[in-house]
Nucleic acid binder design. Sequence first.
DNA 1: TCGCCTGCTGCAATCGGTTTGCAGCCTGAT
DNA 2: ATCAGGCTGCAAACCGATTGCAGCAGGCGA
Lengths: 169, 169
Amino acid sequence: MNNACSQHAHPHRLVQQPLTELTDRLRAGSRKVTGQREAILDVLRRHASPLTNREIHAALGKNDCDLATIYRNMHTLTSMGLVKRFDFGDGAARFELLTDASDHHHHHLVCNQCSAIVEIEDCFPTEYEEALAKRHGFTAVTHRLEFFGTCPRCQKSTAAVDPTIARPS
Amino acid sequence: MNNACSQHAHPHRLVQQPLTELTDRLRAGSRKVTGQREAILDVLRRHASPLTNREIHAALGKNDCDLATIYRNMHTLTSMGLVKRFDFGDGAARFELLTDASDHHHHHLVCNQCSAIVEIEDCFPTEYEEALAKRHGFTAVTHRLEFFGTCPRCQKSTAAVDPTIARPS
DNA sequence: TCGCCTGCTGCAATCGGTTTGCAGCCTGAT
DNA sequence: ATCAGGCTGCAAACCGATTGCAGCAGGCGA
């Protein structure tokens, strides 16, 4: 139960890339490392938590770029290996850039009330995932795993919210 | 690695309910078991896979009800314990009704290409989740876990799709 | 150097899932 | 019978995301 995760063992999946490899891949594919893309990556590098398109847009200064172009650039960067996450409960995609060269796979623990995000090293065990894939005849099996709960601060400050509308399935 | 899942052990979370308990709860809360709600639950009961609001709407016959009312009713039913799932990769919520009285928790394995859904019994181990919660000071921790891959049929019929846009994070 | 091709960008429109305001209806309690 | 509250249909709006279009910029060959 550590960061040994099948998502990284599978040959079909691009390994999450630090900044320099992303820009190298852009160049290798006759795409350009434009100022906006550099700025996007810089914003991601300076933030510990994954950011939404809107948050990136705001961080760049709303006047300097178009939100639609951010969406397009995030799509491009994702195809270069940037990690896109969908699993924070609000339906918005988030993007995450690793700043060191290590293959630092992780999941997240999200506070149901204040949306605080904590990085988690726990992961679904590879051997179980492989057995699962074999059992059902699937290949290229990956998973999404996110945790939700009440963070220490919200435990103190808030009465319990209605548990029936908790987001995790 | 079975269906022992912390989501059910936690006292704050409503246990997933079969049809009769949902209707009982409606009545207990001075809500009504209207014809439309009965029809919705009947549709869910007859389908093995979780359904979206639109699918339920279509199954009911588009002329007989309003989509907005379906959304409202699904919200109501969810607050009564019906299980709502967000994790099938297309951004649409899905609803699931258990037809037997057993506490039959499960997750899903979704085909990236044809969206086929397979119920699976594997779950993130409770003891790890509890340790995780304690380690970070969170309470009421639950999780979302979904698996994605290529189903046997799509392995035969389709060339590999671009792995860089695979949906799981 | 001149075009030309390709990719990038801003703008506006659009789409799909979801929510909400409003008015009318039905039902159960007083 | 009356009244309040919940339910419903309709229309509009919201939000994340995508797309068509036109203009622009940079690289490359003639």
